[in-house]
Design a protein around this nucleic acid. Structure first.
Lengths: 228, 228
DNA sequence: TGTCAATTGTCAGTGGCTGTCATTAGCCTC
DNA sequence: GAGGCTAATGACAGCCACTGACAATTGACA
């Protein structure tokens, strides 16, 4: 920190990340724990997997597991965390002339395309897709998932408000639009995880289809119009 | 069940509920545990309260606590559970000619009026209102709260679909509208619990105001129009 | 009053998670 | 390349939520 190289360290910390054996080893055990956990969740179930099981699968002590992850839950949300970061960045990068819903829509669809490589660096996506069903069907994980989603929405509301030059706390509209958007996403998530097309592309298509329904869903009375 | 009185028992079970000493005693300890738990949560915080604390406050064993409640969490959501039931009933009772959002809006505002008596039978509402802040600010409880909300939305979507003569799984619109509605409710909940008017009336007003914003929030571009 | 069933307490055990301390293993300098 | 430094690990003890099992108690009802 106070060494003459401190500035260099700050800037090149990414490159230094994997150079020494120490760091490489750390990353290896971390990814191994992650994969072991997800594999066990996907096959045996979340509640049926103990932290001891995970640690044993990688042949480290339980204590070591907790030094890499704050809790069992954190392993299950490793990929979602990456995805959320991508979405936030994508929304930030949207041209300011787009309407809020349009910007959100494009950002999400776009980030579905980049998610692959970001994830595969640590675990095979296919593995996460299997874990996703577990998240949706395990009460404790579903609850955590929804809380994370709520936090994401709060962030997005802030970004949207900024785009539109509004104050999030004074004007309810950013939060409302984001809530609507988030609701649609959740509906598609559930549908997708319940169906059998467990691919990223399937998710992408579903999302696109449902987001297109938002307008019609809110317009007028449904009974007069034709089927969706 | 197979006794000659079984039918009578079924029908008059409500009246029989408090007649014998056994039942009265059970209800008393149950309500005492509930109040003790909420009181402790409100003053000391949720995580800082152990089940042993709650049991000790009522002078029963920890094991007995778990015979009355499935877990620590359940005590915190006693009032919300009542409220949810009221909302569901209120939506079901709405005249079928009302549009979905209108029916939901009226049902919720209406149930805020009946919630008082339903709750006070067990614990003072004022106590729950204090606990509500704890729910919003405790990650584990917030997560559980959001999961409950999601389940409620699923129920409401079913009811709305039925009103409109639609199939929830074939037509996305009921779920989308309910998601929008739920989103608005969540926004008001957060705002209300963050403010200082912690009364049912305050909540009612906030809800009404925000629900009125739903239309404007979705209409056109915000930058051209005037302030909300 | 005595029998039966329900309520409760006690005890032991599991699983998630944390603090502590000694041991190990990579790193860096001389 | 030996030795000191520091970071990573393991082993152990302990807290808390929660559960199963069994014995003791207590209200119900004939």
């Amino acid at each position: 920190m106070t060494s003459p190289y401190s500035l260099n360290w700050e800037n090149s910390s990414d490159e230094r990340h994997d150079v020494n054996l120490r760091e490489r080893k750390k990353r290896r055990t971390r990814d191994a724990l992650l994969r072991a956990a997800l594999e066990l969740f996907a096959t045996r179930g979340y509640e049926e997997t103990t932290v001891d099981d995970i640690a044993a699968a990688v042949d480290v002590s339980q204590r070591t597991f907790f030094r890499y992850f704050a809790g069992k839950e954190e392993t299950a949300f490793f990929v979602p965390r990456l995805a959320e970061a991508l979405v936030v960045d994508a929304v930030r990068a949207r041209p300011p002339h787009e309407a809020p819903l349009e910007a959100l829509r494009r950002a999400v669809l776009e980030s579905w395309d980049t998610i692959n490589e970001a994830v595969e660096e640590h675990v095979p996506i296919e593995l996460h897709l299997r874990v996703y069903r577990v998240i949706e069907s395990t009460p404790a994980l579903l609850a955590a998932h929804l809380r994370r989603a709520a936090e994401l929405e709060e962030q997005l509301a802030g970004i949207i408000a900024e785009r539109e030059g509004l104050d999030v706390d004074a004007d309810p509209r950013p939060r409302i639009v984001v809530a609507l958007f988030g609701g649609v996403i959740r509906v598609t998530e559930r549908l997708w995880s319940a169906g059998d097309d467990l691919t990223i592309e399937g998710m992408r298509e579903l999302t696109a289809t449902y987001l297109d329904q938002v307008g019609p869903a809110l317009a007028g009375n449904w009974r007069a119009g034709q089927s969706p």
